[in-house]
Amino acid sequence: MIEYLQILGEEVYKIIFFIVPILVSVAMIVWLDRRVWGLVQKRRGPNVVGPFGLFQTLADALKYIFKEIIIPASANRIVFILAPIVTMTLALVAWAVIPMSESLVLADINVGVLYLFAVSSLGVYGIIMGGWASNSKYPFLGAIRSAAQMVSYEVSIGIIIINVLLCVGSLNLNDIVIAQKELWYVIPLFPMFVIFFISALAETNRPPFDLPEAEAELVAGYQTEYSGMMYAMFWLGEYANILLMCAMGSILFLGGWLPILDIYPLNIIPAPIWMITKILFLFLLFALIKAIVPRYRYDQLMRLGWKIFLPFSLIYLVLTASFLFYFDKLPKVNI
């Protein structure tokens, strides 16, 4: 029992050392997002609080903490309070399996990819719960839209993951990274990478697919009735999810913590720095897309997900499998 408590204490220590940097980087990423958005539109973006406006998000968070939390009279109180907690928790829980280097990972489990996929598919509950519990029409419409959107795009993300798994032969995230030592999967599976990126945009409700919170139609979607810290939790959860999608993309396609080339000056740079660079690169793409692309219409969104991405990724799956089978490159399982 005492041994167990010791292990538990160690784990808690590790978890805190993993979670705190993620929360800080979420704050920084929000700043980066707004900054890039501003620069694209020839504005300055947040530049007042701290050097280059770096502390803008912290100031915002402080403001949210001191704001009053208003719970609508007709809302379902328990579900209403639970919704932002669910969103935030699920966004952070998924980071347990993300390997920052071969050893720097909280839980190196066998089914890492499935775990990531499961947790990201649970993310829809926070939104549905928030939208329904608010008991108001805009949040409800936003929640319904968002749920339909996330469920639709999960399907193609699942098939894209199967594409990668076929080449790796393991569900462990570290194995997936190590299998890309010769060649990053972004090269042979480039179309899948593009589709994954676009589906990740839809999965995290980012522009051009931010229909659940389209301000011209739905005020702020499922967040309309939320205020103060509860709104901030939705917001943090959303950005943690975006970072998670970037991490997932870099593990599946960009070689995770591997250096670009395995040659002298590049491979002495520690693995976590490579991982962070790749996540930041993908996030920069997210931010640019937000700034330069107009919003989709809802039927176009559904058409893109079901009629284009799904068939295309299925065909590509068959092609990948046939290629691997024909050239006898299927990963071997040692039994």
């Binding site: 489990i109 319904i144 469920v151």
Partner: peptide, 25 residues
Amino acid sequence: EFLGMILLIVYVGAVAVLFLFVVMM
């Protein structure tokens, strides 16, 4: 672990979402 994760993905991630949909609509 595979069965557990598939249960989460299929039932919680997809089927229960549809349940919620139907119940709410």
